[in-house]
Write a protein that binds this DNA or RNA. Structure first.
Lengths: 219, 219
DNA sequence: CGCACATTTGACGAGAATCAACTGCAGTGG
DNA sequence: CCACTGCAGTTGATTCTCGTCAAATGTGCG
């Protein structure tokens, strides 16, 4: 990160006020021209069916960008919804600089490209998860993804990470009913695959959970 | 489309030889630097689980680009596989020109952006389909998507479009077993929602199928 | 004709949804 | 201080969707 980039980031940043759970950061179809960095909390990309069924297509966590699309002029293909209370920073200036003059801000531009790449890959993961995996595999697979992403920002010695979502919201992410999420989580706790306490999850055995997620270990 | 763009496209194009079903156009992880236009046939973006389960994450049909990513340097996040015999044209030159000098080829650049936008939106559709829809809804929803895309290239008076996929492959797209695809298709034919004959599907009543796809009409 | 492959059928079981009720708990206000 | 409220989590009973296994039928093709 060069001097110009550092200066850009350390400029006075407009902190947005706290945002309540359920608030829509960006509406379906709106222009994604005001990207934000998530300081704390989680955002979900939400699609609704007419009869009320809900699918959360992607999750965005603290340290990641939201309401952001690397392609100028892109519109929201889903609603961006606060799944928890949020603190955000507007980073439109930084992002515009990086995307508009990539040669002057090479590292920023690279970071944005990687973030975008990651988000795309995650979307394919999500299709596989809900399309072809069993309930316990979906949970294991998601837990590993979230653990990896949290560890990148806040490395944890104990393989623990925050899980502020209710089981209902989790169901909307995983394509499962609340009740089934609950029962499956219980079974996974009994099997020593996952510990869930006080709004965070812990993975006692990463290798083991990996086997479960990949389906190589039967239920 | 300006003169320069037209000249670029009408230059001698290297036709690739026919490609057989099952051939891998681009391997998982490979650099997507040789985009191709599909002259005929369908390509699938394929992800495999260790135990052999397969999820087709996206479909690409004649008239669309494959092995293409608008972001320079992007790698394949799934295997690009020929789901039918294929005829392709290499369009790396055209795409490089459009992405490298968007100001000189504004229309081409716009087309590529739209194609990319569409692909992304389709991916969200796919998550909703396999995550929250019932079997007959998934089929209806996919049929409408394919109809719309075909109609854009080859408008049809009878709401018909080619369907070269076997029910097994269709199952891998929809996250369903072959048997269940078969039974569900039969029921939908009986209900007059879909006519399937000789490698093509026909939609007798678009509005009706839309209701089914949106879940507003119960099974 | 015979082969390979796609579609279809039946029987059965497993995974997940649904409905309804109950528990636990934090916040609120009397 | 404690009833009251609302919400998240839990449980049981039941139903439904969908998967699996196996076999049969249909179809294009060398």
């Amino acid at each position: 990160m060069n001097v110009r980039e550092t200066a850009l980031i350390s400029a006075d940043l407009p902190f947005s006020a706290g945002i309540a759970t359920g608030h829509e950061i960006a509406a379906l179809g709106s222009l994604l021209d005001r990207p934000k960095l998530i300081l704390s909390g989680w955002v979900g990309l939400v699609r609704l069916l007419e009869d009320g069924r809900r699918q959360i297509v992607d999750l965005q966590i603290a340290g990641e960008l939201t309401a952001f699309d690397i392609r100028p002029g892109a519109t929201a293909k889903a609603a961006y919804v606060a799944l928890t209370p949020l603190r955000l920073v507007e980073v439109g200036d930084v992002v515009d600089a990086a995307t508009g003059q990539p040669d002057r801000f090479p590292n920023l531009a690279a970071v944005l490209r990687m973030a975008d790449d990651d988000a795309y890959s995650r979307l394919l993961d999500q299709v596989v998860r809900v399309g072809r995996m069993l309930a316990h595999e979906r949970i294991a697979h998601l837990a590993l993804d979230l653990h990896r992403r949290h560890d990148r920002v806040v490395p944890s010695l104990s393989n623990a990470f925050p899980m502020p979502l209710t089981q209902e919201v989790l169901g909307d992410v995983l394509g499962l009913s609340t009740v089934h999420v609950n029962r499956t989580l219980q079974q996974m706790r009994r099997d020593g695959l996952l510990k869930t306490a006080g709004g965070s999850w812990q993975i006692p055995d990463l290798a083991l959970l990996n086997e479960v997620a990949s389906g190589s270990r039967p239920a």
